[in-house]
Design a protein around this nucleic acid. Structure first.
Lengths: 220, 220
DNA sequence: TAAATTATTTAGATTGATCTAAATATAAGA
DNA sequence: TCTTATATTTAGATCAATCTAAATAATTTA
């Protein structure tokens, strides 16, 4: 029923709601790289469909129905990513863009089967939780590597964006989910981090990269 | 580059060219269920793109480039169908509509990998040949069951349409690719066929169904 | 708090894909 | 061959999704 475009708006609002209290037209506009006027226009349509709520000049929120639809799209996206990596052997850097297209396929047979073949995974290859069939999603517990303190030992549990560019960079540095790193030093000038890796060698990561890495503290 | 819509026009012309010498605007119009005016309009665009040729009021033909693009879309479609049945265990009645969406995914990594996992299949689950990477497609040798003569022993090698409706009907009658049938009688009134099946039981198939079944003659 | 900045909305235009109705050309039949 | 039927093209309209520019509202800052 909903066009791919509409599904992408729902998904955008959902994702933004996961990390912010308030989602503005401008946030959606930046996220989808369309003008604010376009977003405003689409919000009128989504309000008529009862998938979003918004008072004039106020932030947008998904309705229960809108949130459920968004969660189902994200569920399909993440199950597809998982299938592509686990069952087809594609690298985590390649699956996001494919899943971006597969998420719009209307076929419960397909996604239920992938889910079953994967034995009902809880997380996608980038560490993000997969919403269940009711749209429930576990809340992740993490902080960004850029927020870590000197001396802390952390483990990578997810990434903020699944772009090929970031993930190829991480591949090159031998960083994957589960990789442990100790923060040796934080450069005050550019907020880059000096890290000790598992093999005792050291590595410098820019603040841009550290802002994209989700970590948890681990015991020493 | 090409929208899904444009890809569907290329595919439609390609498919029609496989079974007719001349492809008219009206043929495409019926095939895609859009008005002839819409097709005409789209042909102007495809001509500018150099993917079709057409003189005013004349039939349309794909250019070499247009044909190659069409073949690549059909290749993706058929590889996907094969993967869905062979590797994921979906029934042949369910895969066409899914492949209809997957065929537009722009990812050689994905389709090359499916092709490899399938060990480079030559036919899809409905018996249609898969174009190779150069766009070459083997010419199938078959006739329709509706053309078979009384007494002939035939084997199902493909279907004219991959609709869920037809394929569920065939499932119910235990008819699949490879099934052999002997034509016992052709009713002159409605052109229905009385067939002897592999298990020696008999079955009547309407001319509508016989028109959709591709068979070859086999030795007795 | 007044001014400046930022965000949202409105207005009007564009593009892609579609339609119907009318005009024109081609093909088929008497 | 003339008439009729069918096919194609043209013209003009609509809808979804986008844009820019301008107007308006809300927020921030001096």
């Amino acid at each position: 029923m909903a066009s791919n475009t509409i599904e992408n708006y729902l998904k955008a609002i959902y994702s933004l709601q996961q990390k912010q209290e308030k989602v503005n037209i401008t946030d959606v506009s930046k996220h989808l790289e369309v003008s604010a006027a376009t977003v405003n226009n689409m919000m009128q349509k989504l309000k008529k469909m009862k998938w979003v709520k918004q008072e004039k000049y106020q932030p947008v929120t998904l309705t229960v129905e809108g949130e459920k639809r968004a969660a189902m799209i994200i569920r399909k996206h993440r199950i597809a990513e998982m299938y592509l990596t686990e069952k087809m052997g594609l690298g985590w850097e390649n699956v996001h863009s494919i899943a971006e297209e597969m998420e719009h396929i209307d076929s419960s047979i397909l996604f239920d089967r992938m889910d079953e073949l994967l034995d009902y995974p809880k997380y996608d290859p980038h560490g993000s939780p997969i919403p269940n069939k009711d749209g429930k999603i576990v809340k992740m517990n993490f902080h960004l590597l850029s927020q870590a303190e000197t001396g802390s030992l952390v483990q990578l549990v997810g990434v903020e964006d699944s772009s090929k560019e970031l993930l190829e960079f991480l591949n090159q540095k031998m960083i994957r989910l589960g990789t442990e790193m100790k923060v040796l030093e934080i450069a005050s000038f550019d907020k880059s981090l000096l890290l000790e890796m598992e093999e005792k060698d050291t590595l410098v990561l820019s603040s841009k990269v550290c802002n994209a890495l989700r970590v948890i503290e681990v015991e020493k």
